[in-house]
Structures are given as C-alpha cells and as structure tokens.
Simulated scan of single mutants.
Amino acid sequence: MSTTRPKFGVDLITFYNPSFWGLPDEAAIQELSDRDPDAIWRKILDSAAAAGITSLEVTFGPANVDSIRRAFGGAKEFKKELDGRGMELKSAFYLEGSWDPAADRGAIADSAAAYARFIKEAGGDVLVASPPMRTTWNAQPPQFNDFDFLKNVADIAHVVGHASLQEGVTTALHTEAHSSFCTARDVDLLMALTDPLFVSLCPDTGHLALSGGEPTHIVSRHRERVVISHWKDATGPAPLRVPIDETIHDTHREYFRRVGAGSIDWFSWGRLMREIGFTELALLELDAVADPVTEITAAREFIERSLAPVFP
C-alpha cells in the first residue's frame, strides 16, 4: 500500500469559463487560442501553479494538442516548459477516433498511436477516452445500450488500447454522464467486455454521481483497472431521460461542485483509493468555472485537511 503524499492535477476544461478570460463566450476563447496560443498557455500554467497544481490533463480546445504545437513547437518543447515549472503532463483526452461500427479500424489505430506518441513525448502515460454518448430516450429508432452495442464499443476500445500501449501509454475509459458508460450497470458490462491488459478505467466521481451511482461502490468492483481518476463533486443525480444533444455537457455544469462541496462521500472514496494503493495523484476537475484558482485551491485543501485520516 502506497503512502506517498499525492500530487494534485487538473483537467484543463476547468479553465474554460469565459469570465475567467474576460471574454464574452467560449468561441472568443478559441479565437484567442488561434491568434495567440502563448497567451492561453501562460495564463493556464500560471493559474494552475497558483492553485498548487503540478500535473495536467490536456483535453479539447482551446488548450489542446494543436494549441501546444502552435505555442511551443511540439511535445518535447512542451515537456521542457513543464519541467521548468516543476509540472508534468499526466494524461490527455482522446477525441479523434470514431465509435462508429463501420469506422476504419486501421485508421483508428493510426490516430490513437499518433496521439499516444505525443502524450509520451510530452511526459504523460495515460490516454483518456470517453465511449459514445447515448441517444435521447425517446429517439426513433431507439438505441439500446445493450450487449451488442457495447461489444462494438469494446472492440474499438481494444484497437485504441492496443495502439496506445505500443507507444507506452495506457488507455483508460472515462465515465461520462449520459454516455454509454455512465451507470453502474454500464461500467460493469463494459469492463467485463474489455481486456484489462489493454483497457483501463478513468472513473469520474462527479459524472458517476450525476448518473445515479455511488462512485466508491462502483469503482470498488473494478479497483484493479483504475490508472487515473477525476475528482469532482456533484449535487446529486441528474435526470437521465433528457434530450442528449450538443448542449448536454453544458447542462451537466449546474450539477457539478468542487470536491467537498456536494453530495459525494469523500471519506469512503479516499479510503478506497488508499486501499488500492492509488494515492500518487488526485486529478481535480470542474467544468469551466469562473474562478478556477479559488475552486481548485479549496478542493486541494479539503483533501489535504479533511481527508488526511483516510487519504495520505
């Protein structure tokens, strides 16, 4: 059992609120990234450091892999920048592949390998992938999240996992609310359908809570699969029978809270992480908050102070 003092990480979506940038909307943040990627990265890295963060998870734009290339020149140069700040890249969210059953598996493998190569060169070791979203419950024809559907998801996850592993990077599936991998039953079934040698687990406590699950109970059954986890709180379950479209992720935000400010039992979660020896990193996350430094600092301090008896 590890008793290493944890490092604290953050998923960069935390910094995507327009108010944080003094801009009118998210499109304006992307425009700033296109025009001046250095400005995006300076503010994010300075703010992460101010919140006591040393590990990063890169996600979609504006602070994505493309912006890293434009701001720093490439993965190795990005690693040098992080090294100079006492930081590291831990993981990156993979959005380039397709979960379509008819998708070219060779193209998926090539894409995943290239993305994993970038992660490795930048110092990271985890590729986080989110299985496809559900369709709205009353869609016609209905899409059932059944064995056949998830078997295809598992097959593509194996392609991604095999390709990333060749580059020294582990693929972990993320538990996204309203996706095909969000309820306790979804997690159990897709974990059963995937080979643990190639596919690992990235539980997101907030998304599991939104989906009506108790994160500790769900993850305890798959403890050997955890290679990274997203720590965020939630007010409680969100309705599952809602329209699932391009606005669903914005809808999630009203339910999310920083660690310690919602309904999740963090003491049981901390004990579980300690039991499985997963105490090296707590990756904090909130979706696009106006004051990320304050929120992430409060989450970190809650873990350090309140969870000290159960989480080293």
Rank of each mutant, 00 (worst) to 15 (best):
L208W: 02
S19R: 14
R5P: 07
F20H: 11
V226R: 08
A103Q: 05
A163C: 03
S67D: 07
V10D: 01
D11Q: 15
H249Y: 15
D265Q: 07
D125V: 00
F93L: 13
P215H: 06
Q143N: 11
Q30G: 15
V169M: 04
H249F: 15
R134S: 05
G236D: 03
Q143T: 13
K151C: 10
N64E: 09
D204S: 09
P239M: 06
L189C: 06
H158D: 03
V242L: 08
P203M: 06
V199C: 00
K43T: 12
M191Q: 03
D233I: 00
R257C: 08
V58E: 02
W21N: 03
E246I: 13
A298N: 11
K120H: 10
A308N: 09
A71C: 14
T170W: 12
T294R: 13
L208G: 02
W137E: 12
E81G: 02
H178K: 09
Q140W: 14
F60W: 12
A28P: 01
E77D: 11
T59S: 14
M191H: 00
V58T: 10
G262R: 02
W21Q: 04
R305N: 15
S211K: 00
A163Q: 02
F72Y: 15
A129W: 09
E285H: 07
L284Q: 01
D186L: 04
L197A: 15
D25P: 05
S55Q: 15
D195L: 01
G123H: 03
P131V: 03
A288D: 12
D250I: 09
S200Y: 01
S180F: 01
F60H: 11
A50H: 12
A298V: 08
H252P: 01
S306D: 15
P24I: 05
L210M: 14
A39R: 15
A172D: 08
D146I: 02
M273C: 08
S67W: 04
F20L: 10
Y94S: 04
E295L: 07
H178Q: 11
P243C: 02
D233C: 00
W99N: 07
P292K: 08
K7S: 14
A129M: 13
H249R: 15
D125C: 05
A50T: 09
N17Q: 14
E88I: 09
D125M: 00
E88K: 13
R70H: 11
D83T: 07
G206W: 03
A139P: 06
P309A: 08
R305E: 12
L189D: 05
P243F: 04
A184L: 09
F60A: 13
K80F: 09
F198E: 13
V128A: 10
A28E: 03
L12A: 03
R223T: 04
S2F: 07
G277S: 07
V65T: 14
V227P: 05
H178F: 09
K90H: 13
A51G: 06
A299I: 04
L12R: 00
K232A: 01
A49F: 03
F60E: 10
R223D: 08
T279Y: 05
P215R: 02
V227W: 05
P37H: 07
G212P: 06
L95D: 11
W266E: 02
G52W: 06
D34M: 11
G86E: 10
A157G: 02
W21K: 04
G61C: 08
T294C: 10
